[in-house]
Design a protein around this nucleic acid. Structure first.
Length: 493
RNA sequence: CGGGGUGUAGCACAGUCCGGUUAGUGUGCCUGGUUUGGGACCAGGAGGUCGGGAGUUCGAAUCUCUCCACCCCGACCA
């Protein structure tokens, strides 16, 4: 079994340190020379690429197309939607000049004071404003609708405190921005994309989520309704993993985007926006990994299988190379991504530890003994178990095993979530149970005051008002006033 | 932005309180050899603006001021 990894803090010892260590040791990302901004390293970026490819396919399947809008937003645009500016103003990077010059006092380069911009540019924290300013010109008639655009981009939010993947000043994401003729159609779009996100996170990230709607105070700045998927991390804190907003006519009104309806009337356009970010990588890490390192679900692992040869001399290596080549070929033809690591500058033991740390779902090892007996050693990352099997039909076995691992990782996360979800009826009980971590289902009177009180006293927030599950009415655990259904509480990232 | 901590070789750290030879240790790296079924061993070698700047001093990794970065706990947030 794996030796205790040097320098990887255990989860029980210090969960955030474990997370931090893991991101670095598994070579996913590192802090950069720029405050709050990370360098995503090749292995981490490979995971993002897998996520992107899958999500992009799902967006295309639901009728969306990709486009690209500017990084910079004129300052005046941001202030057109009152709630929006209120929500983002405090965390915007601002471009004020367009030129540098040599310091006449010899101190390198300085900002040229003569190159001040007439109007400052905001580095986008999100693109609703620049996009709706653009859509204004694209939309005249109901025939121009719907517009179903997505963009893959980077955005900047000047956060006070950052953590690799979970919260960085710059992050990568996709943002969908759609325009519709009717409220119902926009609402359906927002709900559809929430489903797309939930499907992606559950099926590919192997992470169960609660779908729901945000309370007013947790709503996106400028939205009428914010839909969310909420996942549970191993330390008992919830992570908002994707959001889809029904924006009503707020942005259409702010940017004066109207169309002529079939009936010949001028109407404001209805909108949605929806996004997921590199934060998902943080969720992936925190949900499944263990004290030995990453555990990646096969569907998102940069490579699903790694093969390590064990040999005493060049002749034996040549024999193993030949034997493994056939297996690699067959695995690839079954659609399995595989890396054969026969590099001579690392020892097998080192490779075992390394790929375990990097979360490769299946590791195969072939040595002299296996050559003799036509066998191969199969090691699972999720259970850390090993078995020796015949090479006959090993490829199909591996393919099936990958499905099983995907399922097992999901099941483990699901069981954990269920185990850590509690139903609570009294506020006194809530205050006790919230200390256990996990989700709490409780009745709430629907007011911001009660929500605020709970947050102040317990640090727990309403993650969402679930769309599915028990809808039985009751009474608020704090005020005793009527409640239409239980809502989902947790402490959150 | 408030409180706390850290910054010395690629990485992890000691040395700082109490200023004084040539700044150490582990690991990693390079060379040679032996090894290879869970992070190998021996021998030799290279590698440092002690986070940046200013100051005190005959002398600063060490004292003072200042700036910067990172981590932890808060407030804010995807």
């Amino acid at each position: 079994m794996a030796k205790e990894l040097k320098e990887l803090t255990s989860r029980s010892e210090n969960y955030s340190q474990w997370y931090q260590d893991l991101v670095i040791k598994a070579d996913l990302a590192e802090n950069s020379a720029v405050r709050g901004c990370m360098v995503i390293k090749p292995y981490g970026y490979a995971i993002w690429e897998k996520m992107q490819r899958q999500l992009d396919d799902m967006f295309k399947e639901t009728g969306h197309v990709n486009a690209y809008f500017p990084l910079f937003i004129p300052k005046s645009f941001l202030s057109k939607e009152a709630a929006h500016v209120e929500g983002f103003a405090k965390e915007c990077a601002v471009v004020t000049h367009y030129r540098l010059k040599n310091d006449p006092n010899g101190g390198g380069v300085i900002v040229d004071p003569d190159a001040k911009l007439e109007e400052e540019l905001i580095v986008r924290p999100t693109s609703e404003t620049i996009i709706w300013n653009t859509y204004k010109n694209w939309i005249q008639s109901y025939r121009d609708l719907p517009i179903l655009c997505n963009q893959w981009a980077n955005v900047v939010r000047w956060e006070m405190r950052t953590r690799l993947f979970l919260r960085t000043a710059e992050f990568l994401w996709q943002e969908g921005h759609t325009a519709h003729a009717t409220s119902g159609e926009a609402e359906a779009e927002a709900r559809q994309m929430l489903e797309v996100y939930a499907t992606f996170v559950e099926e590919f990230m192997a992470l169960p989520v609660h779908k729901g709607v945000k309370s007013a105070s947790e709503r996106f700045a400028g939205a009428v309704d914010t839909y969310t998927i909420e996942a549970m991390m191993q330390d008992g804190k919830a992570l908002q993993s994707g959001t889809s907003h029904f924006l009503g006519q707020n942005f259409a009104k702010a940017f004066d985007v109207t169309f002529t309806s079939k009936e010949g009337k001028q109407e404001h356009v209805w909108a949605t926006s929806w996004g997921v970010s590199t934060r998902l990588i943080g969720a992936l890490i925190m949900a499944h990994s263990d004290d030995n390192g990453l555990v990646l679900p096969p569907k998102l692992a940069p490579y699903q299988v790694v093969i390590v040869p064990i040999y005493r001399n060049d002749e034996q290596l040549a024999q193993i190379n030949e034997k493994v080549a056939g297996i690699v070929k067959n695995l690839k033809s079954l659609g399995v991504s595989v890396k054969y690591d026969n590099s001579d500058n690392k020892k097998p033991g080192w490779k075992f530890a390394e790929y375990e740390l990097k979360g490769v779902p299946v590791r195969l090892a072939m040595g002299g003994r296996d050559l003799e007996s036509n066998t191969i050693e199969v090691a699972r990352r999720d259970t850390l178990t090993k078995e020796t099997r015949s090479c006959d039909d090993i490829e199909q076995y591996i393919k099936d095993l990958l499905d099983e691992i995907q399922q097992n990782i999901y099941q483990k996360a699901f069981d954990f979530r269920e185990k850590t979800t509690q139903v609570v009826d009294s506020y006194a009980d809530f205050k006790v149970k919230i200390e256990d971590g996990g989700f709490i289902l409780a009745h709430w009177d629907g007011t911001a005051e009660t929500e605020e009180l709970i947050k102040d006293e317990t640090k727990a927030t309403i993650r969402c008002i679930p769309l599915e599950g028990d809808k039985t009415p009751g009474v608020c655990m704090v005020t005793g006033k009527p409640s239409t259904q239980r809502v989902l509480f947790a402490r959150a990232y």
